[in-house]
Simulated scan of single mutants.
Amino acid sequence: MMHAADLPDTIPVFPLPGALMLPRARLPLHIFEPRYLAMIEDCLKTKHRLIGMIQPRDTPASEKREGEKRLQAIGCAGRLTGFSETEDGRYMVTLSGISRFRIKEEVQGFTPYRRCLVDWAPFARDLGPTENDPGFKREAFMALLGRYFAKLNLSTDWDNLKGAEIELLINSLSMLCPFSHEDRQALLEAPTLDTRRETLVTLIEFALRGGADEEIMQ
C-alpha cells in the first residue's frame, strides 16, 4: 500500500479518451506510440512507478496547446504492476489504481510525453481501505443491470458479478460499461463509493429509458 508521503509532486500523464481508472481497480493498456513507449520506460526507472490516466477535454482547435488537447482537471494515477513486451516492440502493461489527483499545472520540459504537477490532498481517502456502501441493494441493482445488459446485448459472468465485493462491482462496471466520455468523468469524480453507485444507477436508468419507459429504482 502506498502512503501520501510516497506520492510524487509531478507525474507523467497519459491522455486517453474514454479510459477510466479508479482506485484499487486494474486497467490493462496496449502501448505502441513512441512517446508512450518512452513514458513506460522512464516510469520503470522510478521508485513509485506511477502514471496518471486522464481524459482530454473536447476543446476548439484554437485552444489546443501545440496541437494537443486540454486535459480534464481530475484524473487517477496507477502504479505500473504488470509489464510485457511483444516481439514487434509494443508493451502490454497493467496499472493498479492508487489515487485520484487534481492537476495544478502542466510541466514544460524535454520529455516527448506530458507531465503535470498534481495535488493529491482532495482524494486522501483513496489511499485508505476498501470502501463500503451501506445503501447498496444487491438484488435490485442486479435486476437493473440485467435489463441494461439485455438491452445492449452484453454478456458477462453473472456468477462472479453476484458474488463480487461491492467496491469491485461498482468500480468494474463504471470502467467497463459503454458510457460517454463525460459520463466516465462524472463516475471518476464521484467523491465516495455510494455517490458513484448512485451515478452509475442514474446512467443505466437513463440508457434504459432511451428505449423504454422504465421504472426508476430508488
Rank of each mutant, 00 (worst) to 15 (best):
G75A: 02
T156E: 13
L50P: 06
D194P: 10
Q218W: 02
L37K: 15
R70A: 04
A121E: 14
K137V: 13
E139F: 05
R115A: 09
E214F: 13
L161V: 08
L187S: 03
E66F: 11
G89R: 07
G67K: 09
K45G: 04
W158R: 14
S96C: 02
L20S: 11
G211L: 06
L117R: 15
D183R: 01
T202I: 01
S62Y: 09
E87C: 07
A61C: 01
E66C: 01
L127H: 04
P17Q: 13
K69L: 04
L27W: 12
P178L: 06
V118C: 13
P23N: 03
P129C: 00
L200M: 06
D42I: 07
A190G: 07
K69V: 00
T195I: 06
G97H: 10
D213S: 13
I98F: 06
I51N: 00
F123V: 02
P12C: 05
L144W: 12
K45E: 15
G52I: 00
I40W: 07
R184N: 13
T94K: 09
D159V: 11
A4N: 03
D9R: 13
A143S: 12
L161R: 03
G52D: 06
A77D: 02
P56R: 05
F123E: 08
L188Q: 10
M53I: 15
